[in-house]
Nucleic acid binder design. Sequence first.
RNA 1: GGGGUGGUAGUUCAGUUUGGUUAGAACGCUGGCCUGUCAAGCCAGAGGUCGCGAGUUCGAGUCUCGUCCACCCCGCCA
Length: 597
Amino acid sequence: MLKRTVTCGELRAKDKDREVVLSGWVASWRDHGGVIFIDLRDISGLTQIVFGREKSGLDKGKEEELIKQAQKLRNEFVIAVKGVVSARPEGTENKKIDTGDIEVIVTEMELLNKCRELPFDFKKMDEVGEETRLKYRYLEMRVGKLKDNLVFKHKLFQVTRNYFSGKGFYEIETPFLTRATPEGARDYLVPSRVNPGKFYALPQSPQLFKQMLMVGGFMRYFQIVKCFRDEDLRQDRQPEFTQLDLEMSFIDEADIKAVLEEYVCSVFDKLMGVKVSRPFPSLSYDQAMLRYGTDKPDLRIPAEITDISDLALSCGFKVFSDAAGKGVVRGLKISDADRISLSVINEVTKEVQQLGAKGLAWIRHKEEGLTSQITKFFKPEELEELSRRFKTIKGDLLFFVADSADTVSKCLSFLRTRFYEPRKDKYALLWVEDYPLFEKDAETGRWSPMHHPFTSPAPGDIEALRSGKDEDIARVKSRAYDMVLNGSEIGGGSIRNHSLEVQDLVFRILGIDEKESREKFGFLLKALSYGAPPHGGFAFGMDRLVAQLLNLESIREVIPFPKTQKAYSPITDAPSAVDRKQLDELFIKVDVPEDLT
RNA sequence: GGGGUGGUAGUUCAGUUUGGUUAGAACGCUGGCCUGUCAAGCCAGAGGUCGCGAGUUCGAGUCUCGUCCACCCCGCCA
């Protein structure tokens, strides 16, 4: 085999007259009869190679033989060629590629492999549907943007490892075959052959292990690691995804935030060439929900939500006053809204109805003041007050939703992103903090942890925790914090309970009694009782981080072999049925109802 | 579990509103021509389970019902 001496992306004018060997894929071939041009591609770039030039110095017979060989080449055939680097004739240089000043005159060629007809046109990769791309992922990554995304992810991993190693963090692995936990997402289960009837679970995160590493004295730990959650998929959710997981001892929120901000700044600096100023802005959970209707607001969008429940309660518009009695009435101002026609408003009304709203009220600020079908229900001074609250000017459009706080937030948050296209070259980072420690489960009416059950309550709220009364529990804040980038939750973490007493208190409120907690989490509780240091940590969703940095819609674009929405792998055809023999060995009987097969 | 959008040639799409001759286009593919192209060009050709299944009809890519798949969203995601 001809052995490559250079890559396809590196030759320049200064390499003129060098004899080189290139290998790669035929990216494009242009057969002119007597002369054939081929763009040879490898991961580093393209080089034009030429067959049938006198410069090759071959005798006529050999030249004809070579041309004949080259004529049989097709797209994506794999070849190696020996040849001489030559400056392109004047006027035929190609400015579009880095190697465009030169070409390689071929003297010898070896066909290393053929390629069957391609499932799509490599030159129009951007237009190919995702289903086809996923099925032939190895072809897409040969040429498409996917390659660049994966290279970028590699660089992020490198920056990450360098940064944390440099700060005294130890990279330590934790098990994939671990214990099923009752809380949180559904587990992926793995049967144990040598323990009939028993199952491991794949970790939803290394949470418990990293806490035990802290008890073990490591003080600073990090890991770039896969996590597994068996929940329904979204554009930013895959059943297996990659986290940067970390944990620190003898620290508080300020220490962790400082390290994370410095890390994120170095990522932006090294990979994006963007300087990010510190400290990052911070919002409390309550403020975020009130002003943006979500705990992961995109701060590139200027519009903010305004509460008018007090005004609505006493106004003449029954829809508002009724709703304000039971829930809230809030509004969102869209500036420069003459572009938004009535038919668009009707369309948007349907959209918010699907999110649970009963309707969508609106008022325009026109030349003559606030106008709309509902303005007749308001007294002039009430309209004036509305105008004042929202600081309206001509061209503004106010949307109102009157419902429970949850529904109103969901709808107005949707409207914020519906009418604003954020600037792609801007990056808005922020912290969201002061989360409630618990939330009420709508179905069971029981308390469940908003973050996870090992999150520490705010020190001032421990007494409220002890009281056990619902209204006290509801206002207990946690020591959890999320980092948000452009409306995407790229990471979250918390200070953990290192005190066994507080951890037990939390379990009681979650309805987990001593017996159950010993049974399910006994190993962690035991560890905490052996001198656990105060500790806390964080986890970044690396797929989300990369997707945000590269302005991609879906994390599938940064995962080499992703699953579809039904958690199906188009490339391996997983999941699949297995042989009876395999199941027998595991003492597993499948019992799938007929309507599901 | 629920709502929405889509599925026609290898690929990307048109055709479905208003049922009617042999289902088209571009790119790709195959063969031929062509000595400076680089999304090469010219000529010729092959290529279709209109996602699948029922139904309505003289007749269905087109209408109805069911179903599968993909994507977006709600629920869910400690």
